[in-house]
Protein backbone atom coordinates (compact mmCIF):
# COMPACT_ATOMS: atom_id res chain seq x y z
CA UNK A 1 0.00 0.00 0.00
CA UNK A 2 1.35 3.39 -0.82
CA UNK A 3 1.94 5.60 2.19
CA UNK A 4 1.24 9.27 2.05
CA UNK A 5 4.33 11.45 1.90
CA UNK A 6 6.03 12.28 5.13
CA UNK A 7 5.19 15.68 6.48
CA UNK A 8 6.45 17.54 9.50
CA UNK A 9 2.98 17.69 11.03
CA UNK A 10 2.72 16.24 14.50
CA UNK A 11 5.83 14.07 14.43
CA UNK A 12 5.37 10.82 16.28
CA UNK A 13 7.84 11.51 19.07
CA UNK A 14 9.91 14.66 19.18
CA UNK A 15 10.36 17.03 16.32
CA UNK A 16 13.78 16.84 14.77
CA UNK A 17 15.82 20.03 14.89
CA UNK A 18 14.59 22.47 12.31
CA UNK A 19 16.13 21.79 8.95
CA UNK A 20 16.75 18.11 9.58
CA UNK A 21 14.04 15.65 8.64
CA UNK A 22 15.49 12.22 9.27
CA UNK A 23 13.16 9.28 8.95
CA UNK A 24 14.24 6.99 11.73
CA UNK A 25 14.53 3.37 10.59
CA UNK A 26 13.68 2.37 14.17
CA UNK A 27 10.55 4.50 14.41
CA UNK A 28 7.58 2.39 15.50
CA UNK A 29 5.02 1.76 12.77
CA UNK A 30 2.11 4.16 12.73
CA UNK A 31 -1.14 2.92 14.25
CA UNK A 32 -3.96 2.21 11.83
CA UNK A 33 -7.08 4.35 11.74
CA UNK A 34 -9.02 1.32 12.98
CA UNK A 35 -6.80 1.09 16.04
CA UNK A 36 -7.13 4.83 16.75
CA UNK A 37 -10.90 4.63 16.30
CA UNK A 38 -11.07 1.76 18.82
CA UNK A 39 -9.11 3.87 21.33
CA UNK A 40 -11.45 6.80 20.74
CA UNK A 41 -14.52 4.61 21.27
CA UNK A 42 -13.11 3.08 24.46
CA UNK A 43 -12.30 6.49 25.97
CA UNK A 44 -15.73 7.82 25.01
CA UNK A 45 -17.42 4.85 26.71
CA UNK A 46 -15.26 5.39 29.80
CA UNK A 47 -16.18 9.09 29.86
CA UNK A 48 -19.88 8.25 29.54
CA UNK A 49 -19.58 5.88 32.49
CA UNK A 50 -17.73 8.52 34.52
CA UNK A 51 -20.34 11.13 33.68
CA UNK A 52 -23.15 8.82 34.72
CA UNK A 53 -21.31 8.29 38.02
CA UNK A 54 -21.10 12.08 38.63
CA UNK A 55 -17.50 12.33 37.45
CA UNK A 56 -15.68 15.39 36.15
CA UNK A 57 -17.09 17.66 33.46
CA UNK A 58 -16.17 16.20 30.07
CA UNK A 59 -16.79 19.58 28.43
CA UNK A 60 -13.05 20.16 28.12
CA UNK A 61 -10.61 17.68 26.60
CA UNK A 62 -8.46 15.61 28.94
CA UNK A 63 -4.86 16.71 28.64
CA UNK A 64 -3.89 13.05 28.60
CA UNK A 65 -5.61 11.69 25.52
CA UNK A 66 -3.56 8.81 24.05
CA UNK A 67 -5.26 8.67 20.60
CA UNK A 68 -3.69 12.12 20.08
CA UNK A 69 -0.16 10.77 20.30
CA UNK A 70 1.57 14.09 20.92
CA UNK A 71 -0.30 14.46 24.21
CA UNK A 72 1.50 11.47 25.73
CA UNK A 73 4.80 13.10 26.77
CA UNK A 74 3.33 16.57 27.21
CA UNK A 75 0.52 16.30 29.75
CA UNK A 76 1.04 16.78 33.49
CA UNK A 77 0.62 13.65 35.59
CA UNK A 78 -0.43 15.57 38.70
CA UNK A 79 -3.89 17.11 38.88
CA UNK A 80 -3.95 20.91 38.65
CA UNK A 81 -4.05 22.84 41.93
CA UNK A 82 -7.37 24.65 42.29
CA UNK A 83 -7.42 28.41 42.86
CA UNK A 84 -10.75 29.64 44.21
CA UNK A 85 -11.42 33.09 42.78
CA UNK A 86 -13.81 33.94 45.61
CA UNK A 87 -11.15 33.15 48.21
CA UNK A 88 -8.46 35.09 46.36
CA UNK A 89 -10.26 37.99 44.63
CA UNK A 90 -7.01 39.92 44.09
CA UNK A 91 -5.37 37.15 42.07
CA UNK A 92 -3.62 38.71 39.08
CA UNK A 93 -5.27 36.18 36.75
CA UNK A 94 -8.74 37.62 37.46
CA UNK A 95 -7.77 40.55 35.26
CA UNK A 96 -6.09 40.27 31.90
CA UNK A 97 -4.36 41.94 28.99
CA UNK A 98 -6.22 44.50 26.91
CA UNK A 99 -5.89 45.47 23.27
CA UNK A 100 -6.98 48.47 21.27
CA UNK A 101 -7.22 50.11 17.88
CA UNK A 102 -3.42 50.33 17.63
CA UNK A 103 -3.22 46.52 17.75
CA UNK A 104 -5.26 45.81 14.61
CA UNK A 105 -5.77 47.35 11.20
CA UNK A 106 -9.03 47.33 9.29
CA UNK A 107 -7.68 44.87 6.70
CA UNK A 108 -6.71 42.26 9.28
CA UNK A 109 -10.22 40.79 9.43
CA UNK A 110 -10.37 40.16 5.67
CA UNK A 111 -7.93 37.38 4.78
CA UNK A 112 -8.87 37.62 1.11
CA UNK A 113 -7.49 41.16 0.77
CA UNK A 114 -4.02 40.86 2.23
CA UNK A 115 -2.23 40.32 -1.07
CA UNK A 116 -2.29 41.79 -4.56
CA UNK A 117 -4.71 39.15 -5.89
CA UNK A 118 -7.64 37.06 -4.78
CA UNK A 119 -6.95 33.73 -3.07
CA UNK A 120 -8.33 30.52 -4.53
CA UNK A 121 -11.13 28.74 -2.72
CA UNK A 122 -14.64 29.12 -1.45
CA UNK A 123 -15.02 32.60 0.03
CA UNK A 124 -16.70 32.57 3.44
CA UNK A 125 -17.52 34.88 6.30
CA UNK A 126 -17.36 33.64 9.87
CA UNK A 127 -18.98 35.66 12.61
CA UNK A 128 -20.27 35.19 16.12
CA UNK A 129 -20.33 36.53 19.64
CA UNK A 130 -17.83 36.02 22.43
CA UNK A 131 -19.52 35.74 25.83
CA UNK A 132 -18.42 34.81 29.32
CA UNK A 133 -20.30 32.13 31.22
CA UNK A 134 -22.69 34.65 32.73
CA UNK A 135 -23.71 35.64 29.20
CA UNK A 136 -21.95 39.00 29.32
CA UNK A 137 -20.37 40.00 25.98
CA UNK A 138 -16.59 40.24 25.88
CA UNK A 139 -16.11 43.74 24.48
CA UNK A 140 -13.17 45.23 22.61
CA UNK A 141 -11.06 42.12 22.97
CA UNK A 142 -8.60 40.56 20.58
CA UNK A 143 -9.60 37.59 18.41
CA UNK A 144 -6.86 35.99 16.32
CA UNK A 145 -7.20 33.27 13.67
CA UNK A 146 -4.91 31.18 11.50
CA UNK A 147 -5.70 28.47 9.00
CA UNK A 148 -4.59 26.39 6.04
CA UNK A 149 -5.43 27.58 2.54
CA UNK A 150 -8.17 26.05 0.38
CA UNK A 151 -5.82 23.19 -0.56
CA UNK A 152 -5.05 22.30 3.03
CA UNK A 153 -1.57 23.86 3.19
CA UNK A 154 -0.30 26.25 5.85
CA UNK A 155 2.01 29.10 4.91
CA UNK A 156 4.44 27.63 7.44
CA UNK A 157 7.87 26.28 6.59
CA UNK A 158 7.33 23.10 8.56
CA UNK A 159 4.23 22.19 6.59
CA UNK A 160 5.62 20.18 3.69
CA UNK A 161 2.34 18.52 2.71
CA UNK A 162 2.56 18.57 -1.11
CA UNK A 163 -0.48 20.72 -1.71
CA UNK A 164 -0.01 24.08 -3.42
CA UNK A 165 0.74 27.25 -1.55
CA UNK A 166 -1.40 30.19 -2.63
CA UNK A 167 0.59 33.37 -3.23
CA UNK A 168 -2.56 35.34 -2.46
CA UNK A 169 -3.31 33.75 0.88
CA UNK A 170 -1.42 33.74 4.17
CA UNK A 171 -4.23 32.64 6.44
CA UNK A 172 -3.75 34.97 9.42
CA UNK A 173 -6.34 37.40 10.74
CA UNK A 174 -7.28 39.38 13.81
CA UNK A 175 -9.97 41.75 14.98
CA UNK A 176 -11.42 43.33 18.10
CA UNK A 177 -14.88 42.34 19.30
CA UNK A 178 -17.54 45.06 19.21
CA UNK A 179 -19.81 46.17 22.05
CA UNK A 180 -21.98 43.07 21.59
CA UNK A 181 -18.91 40.84 21.75
CA UNK A 182 -19.16 40.22 18.02
CA UNK A 183 -16.24 39.32 15.76
CA UNK A 184 -16.30 38.80 11.97
CA UNK A 185 -13.80 37.48 9.43
CA UNK A 186 -13.83 37.08 5.67
CA UNK A 187 -11.62 34.27 4.43
CA UNK A 188 -11.66 31.13 2.29
CA UNK A 189 -12.75 27.74 3.53
CA UNK A 190 -9.63 25.81 4.57
CA UNK A 191 -8.95 22.36 3.13
CA UNK A 192 -8.56 19.14 5.10
CA UNK A 193 -4.98 17.92 5.38
CA UNK A 194 -2.99 14.82 6.31
CA UNK A 195 -0.88 14.53 9.45
CA UNK A 196 1.27 11.87 11.01
CA UNK A 197 -0.60 11.02 14.18
CA UNK A 198 -1.42 7.64 12.68
CA UNK A 199 -1.58 6.02 9.26
CA UNK A 200 -3.86 7.81 6.79
CA UNK A 201 -4.70 10.47 9.37
CA UNK A 202 -6.56 13.54 8.09
CA UNK A 203 -7.62 16.62 10.01
CA UNK A 204 -11.15 17.86 9.30
CA UNK A 205 -11.14 21.41 7.89
CA UNK A 206 -10.78 23.90 10.74
CA UNK A 207 -9.84 27.46 11.61
CA UNK A 208 -7.65 28.03 14.67
CA UNK A 209 -9.02 30.73 16.99
CA UNK A 210 -7.44 32.55 19.93
CA UNK A 211 -9.60 34.54 22.38
CA UNK A 212 -8.92 36.83 25.31
CA UNK A 213 -11.62 37.41 27.91
CA UNK A 214 -11.93 40.02 30.60
CA UNK A 215 -9.62 37.87 32.75
CA UNK A 216 -6.49 35.88 31.99
CA UNK A 217 -8.33 32.84 33.41
CA UNK A 218 -10.66 33.02 30.39
CA UNK A 219 -7.90 32.62 27.81
CA UNK A 220 -8.94 30.21 25.07
CA UNK A 221 -7.20 28.73 22.05
CA UNK A 222 -9.36 26.35 20.09
CA UNK A 223 -10.44 25.24 16.60
CA UNK A 224 -13.67 25.88 14.73
CA UNK A 225 -14.96 23.13 12.45
CA UNK A 226 -17.43 23.15 9.56
CA UNK A 227 -20.82 21.42 9.75
CA UNK A 228 -21.21 17.97 8.25
CA UNK A 229 -17.52 17.22 7.77
CA UNK A 230 -17.17 13.47 7.07
CA UNK A 231 -13.79 13.40 8.83
CA UNK A 232 -15.23 14.14 12.30
CA UNK A 233 -15.42 10.52 13.50
CA UNK A 234 -11.80 9.84 12.55
CA UNK A 235 -10.14 12.82 14.23
CA UNK A 236 -8.61 12.27 17.68
CA UNK A 237 -8.22 16.00 18.36
CA UNK A 238 -11.95 16.71 18.02
CA UNK A 239 -12.73 13.38 19.72
CA UNK A 240 -10.68 14.44 22.75
CA UNK A 241 -13.82 16.33 23.76
CA UNK A 242 -15.78 13.25 24.82
CA UNK A 243 -19.13 14.95 25.49
CA UNK A 244 -21.10 15.15 22.20
CA UNK A 245 -22.85 18.37 23.23
CA UNK A 246 -19.48 19.99 23.97
CA UNK A 247 -18.08 18.73 20.66
CA UNK A 248 -21.03 20.31 18.88
CA UNK A 249 -20.00 23.66 20.37
CA UNK A 250 -16.85 23.52 18.22
CA UNK A 251 -18.82 23.28 14.98
CA UNK A 252 -20.03 26.42 13.21
CA UNK A 253 -23.57 26.66 11.83
CA UNK A 254 -24.18 27.48 8.19
CA UNK A 255 -26.39 30.59 8.28
CA UNK A 256 -27.93 31.53 4.95
CA UNK A 257 -28.78 34.96 6.30
CA UNK A 258 -25.05 35.62 6.63
CA UNK A 259 -24.29 34.57 3.07
CA UNK A 260 -23.74 37.52 0.76
CA UNK A 261 -25.23 37.35 -2.74
CA UNK A 262 -22.67 36.42 -5.37
CA UNK A 263 -19.87 36.87 -2.83
CA UNK A 264 -19.56 34.53 0.15
CA UNK A 265 -21.15 31.81 2.27
CA UNK A 266 -21.87 32.64 5.90
CA UNK A 267 -21.09 30.69 9.04
CA UNK A 268 -22.01 31.57 12.61
CA UNK A 269 -19.98 30.42 15.60
CA UNK A 270 -20.64 31.74 19.10
CA UNK A 271 -18.06 31.20 21.81
CA UNK A 272 -18.31 31.04 25.59
CA UNK A 273 -15.14 31.62 27.58
CA UNK A 274 -14.61 29.59 30.72
CA UNK A 275 -13.06 30.85 33.94
CA UNK A 276 -13.80 33.37 36.68
CA UNK A 277 -13.09 37.09 36.41
CA UNK A 278 -12.83 40.01 38.83
CA UNK A 279 -16.36 41.05 37.82
CA UNK A 280 -17.70 37.71 38.97
CA UNK A 281 -16.06 37.94 42.36
CA UNK A 282 -17.25 41.54 42.86
CA UNK A 283 -20.80 40.40 42.26
CA UNK A 284 -20.36 37.24 44.32
CA UNK A 285 -21.04 35.32 41.09
Amino acid sequence: MERHPRTEREPMTHPAPLGAVPVSPTAPPLATQAAISREIAALRAAADADGAAGGPDPGQPARDYPPYRSSTPRHPRQPPVAIDALADPEAVELSGPVFGVTDVTALDADLTRQHTGEPLGERITVTGRVLDRTGRPVRGQLVEIWQANASGRYAHQRDQHPAPLDPHFTGVGRCLTDDDGRYAFTTVKPGAYPWRNHDNAWRPAHIHFSFFGSAFTQRLVTQMYFPGDPLFPYDPILASVTDPAARARLVAVYDHGLSRPEHSLGYRWDVVLDGPSATWTEEGR
Binding site: R133, G135, W146, Y154, L220, Q223, L250, V271
Partner: peptide
Protein backbone atom coordinates in the same frame (compact mmCIF):
# COMPACT_ATOMS: atom_id res chain seq x y z
CA UNK B 1 -29.81 17.73 39.45
CA UNK B 2 -26.58 16.97 41.23
CA UNK B 3 -23.33 18.54 42.33
CA UNK B 4 -22.54 19.52 38.72
CA UNK B 5 -25.83 21.41 38.41
CA UNK B 6 -25.22 23.58 41.47
CA UNK B 7 -23.31 26.60 40.04
CA UNK B 8 -25.57 29.45 39.02
CA UNK B 9 -23.54 29.86 35.83
CA UNK B 10 -25.74 29.07 32.88
CA UNK B 11 -23.63 28.96 29.73
CA UNK B 12 -21.55 25.95 28.76
CA UNK B 13 -18.00 26.87 27.77
CA UNK B 14 -16.52 26.33 24.33
CA UNK B 15 -13.96 23.51 24.63
CA UNK B 16 -10.27 24.06 24.13
CA UNK B 17 -8.33 22.45 21.27
CA UNK B 18 -4.58 22.28 20.80
CA UNK B 19 -2.70 25.26 19.38
CA UNK B 20 -1.04 22.73 17.03
CA UNK B 21 2.33 23.10 15.32
CA UNK B 22 1.54 25.93 12.90
CA UNK B 23 0.73 28.99 15.03
CA UNK B 24 4.22 30.37 14.42
CA UNK B 25 3.31 32.68 11.55
CA UNK B 26 0.19 33.97 13.31
CA UNK B 27 0.63 34.51 17.03
Amino acid sequence: EGPAAAPAVPLDPTPSQTIGPFYGYAL
